[in-house]
Design a protein around this nucleic acid. Sequence first.
DNA 1: ACGCGCTCTGAATCCTGGT
DNA 2: CACCAGGATTCAGAGCGCG
Lengths: 397, 397
Amino acid sequence: MGTSRTGAAGAATRIDVSRTGRPAPAPRMGRKASLSVLPTLPIDQILVGDCIASLEKLPPESVDVVFADPPYNLQLEQALTRPDQSRVDAVDDDWDKFASFSEYDAFTRAWLAGVRRVMKKNATIWVIGSYHNIFRVGTALQDLDFWLLNDIVWRKANPMPNFKGRRFTNAHETMIWASKSAEAKSYTFHYDALKAGNEDVQMRSDWFIPLCTGEERLKDARGRKVHPTQKPEALLARVLLSSSNPGDVVLDPFFGTGTTGAVAKKLGRHFIGLERDPVYAQAARARIDAVEPLSDVAFAAPPEKRAEARVPFLALIEGGYVKAGEILVDERRRYRATVRADGTLALGAIVGSIHKIGALVQGLPACNGWTFWNVERNGALVSIDAFRAKIRAELAA
Amino acid sequence: MGTSRTGAAGAATRIDVSRTGRPAPAPRMGRKASLSVLPTLPIDQILVGDCIASLEKLPPESVDVVFADPPYNLQLEQALTRPDQSRVDAVDDDWDKFASFSEYDAFTRAWLAGVRRVMKKNATIWVIGSYHNIFRVGTALQDLDFWLLNDIVWRKANPMPNFKGRRFTNAHETMIWASKSAEAKSYTFHYDALKAGNEDVQMRSDWFIPLCTGEERLKDARGRKVHPTQKPEALLARVLLSSSNPGDVVLDPFFGTGTTGAVAKKLGRHFIGLERDPVYAQAARARIDAVEPLSDVAFAAPPEKRAEARVPFLALIEGGYVKAGEILVDERRRYRATVRADGTLALGAIVGSIHKIGALVQGLPACNGWTFWNVERNGALVSIDAFRAKIRAELAA
DNA sequence: ACGCGCTCTGAATCCTGGT
DNA sequence: CACCAGGATTCAGAGCGCG
């Protein structure tokens, strides 16, 4: 809440972003009007102002889907540097700062309650977060009588690594998909369309999608990213295609630079965006104005790109193809190494990957461990690469 | 509680599961003894009884890792305990009344507080759950001052499809990995070994592991599965290999059919299992007794770079690898500095460590001098890190 | 045109032991 | 406890300049 605001508390500026590109109307509401409900639903507009105050101006039971990307409450304390000593551009914006978990909880419950009021009976809500905040969001959703339908894992194709090697690479974020109540059974879910777009198997709860980078990422005149946490359009596209219909109204209470609006327009949905920061709101307006809606036939989701999966040697142990403690040998049985339970090889006291140990025994700078090492099966040698092929076949199935 | 119990409330039956397979000792503790702490840590044993009562009998700060697979289906709340430790009666018609989120929260906080007390300062805890309960678990962990390190997604290779087609296929479960407090920085994490077993790239937060099926799945005499949610050993293996050392004590407060114990024994770790249901406990004991530990080399603690002996640069001069007065250069020969007899470098009038001078010439805040500096040998550059490796090898011999 | 190598960057709760 | 200093630590992808 640290960013500058244009109006008095509770006031909101409407920014019209209709496709005609006509200028936005002047702010219509003063202090008094701020307490009342807007005469019409502000379709395809961005309301600039505090999201909880703006929510109060929307009529009850008026939106079909909600997508919310609230602050994560990252709690970063010190600067982080990469191994080359360059600094990581951290999310240190004031809007992500909360004094305590209880303050974050109060904030979360306030906006969720406001959102729930404006959801139609069969509307659903999506909230995205990381381990810093998503557990508190999920608890709040349950406590407010939302009904959880799925938690969806966005697996990032290209996450930032863990530079200090002290944790697992934080390679995903979590979205919670919930209906307004347990009784709402007629929510929108395009099961068949998703299945057809997913090689005729059911869409799973884990989605593999790249980060928002390159041309899609909004930059300012100096080439800096406009928003620190812009989400990829592919993510929003799958959300809206699965849980909304053309013509539906999608509400995003943390609009930012308007990914939800851009994708909604592209897919023939309407949006309502709430955003506190006028800089973000202006960037969103310009972005959405430039969007051309797709023709109906093009509404299908982009197929997930399927690169040949990288199979870790550990997967051969976990899959039972190779046993920890077994001996690997090269084709001529000149070299041998012991398989460890963690998927490494042991050569005396030296431990390393199948590639590193393969290189070491041969005195070479590098080695493809997959084609170098074999196991004994019924008196014959079997390449570990054959097992990798089997696992890849399973993955593809 | 839905299942029968062998002792009085608060009492526990120890089941010894040592490899010799000798029969379990008779219950040792009556009502009085149940309030005191066990004289010795019940290593490699299963304590049959309420987990919160059993936790109170363990000494503080005594276990290295915790793996917990708590009940998450709210219909299992018949096993819940109220905040005052009294048991919720399992009257069929009434249990719905207790199946509230606040009951579940009280239960969760009670066992988490009990577990936290027995964790060593640098111990970590893993808790697995689904979207039904994991958000409440995560919130409770944060509120109890645990420090979240990662949330790990277990992506199931072969999940049960969503039969009605009203949701996404629920194809994953979530594990939270947390340290006892934000201040505990020296928790066990085998970064290097995980990376080496994963094609020499960091292990990510999303793990792809098959469900527990086939021979691994425990069946009773009539061929029915003994436990409804038996976890795959591969999952526990990755948990224990990443966050524990051989000889460590692993506590599992919801032991079930003992996957944690079986994997711990296989990997040379000790376990303590708490289980309310004697049928599960007996099945676990038989299962663990049949486990043969892997050979040492398969699970011995992997060597870690951070733990290697420190070698002062002066030792390279004293060992004759580098001569005082020689010139050090970086790989691209952009920078140079002179070796001084005391093991420092000279850059004009400036004198400092190999690290400090390396940082200085590059204008960076820090630098690893070992990997930055090189000497000329026969026209080629040789990293001073190679000499350090030789000295380390001499030290080890 | 194409490939190669260098640089930059992304919601990050990111070191450790000795004095 | 603070402070200091040794020295350990990154993956995928985009953009750009050069040959």
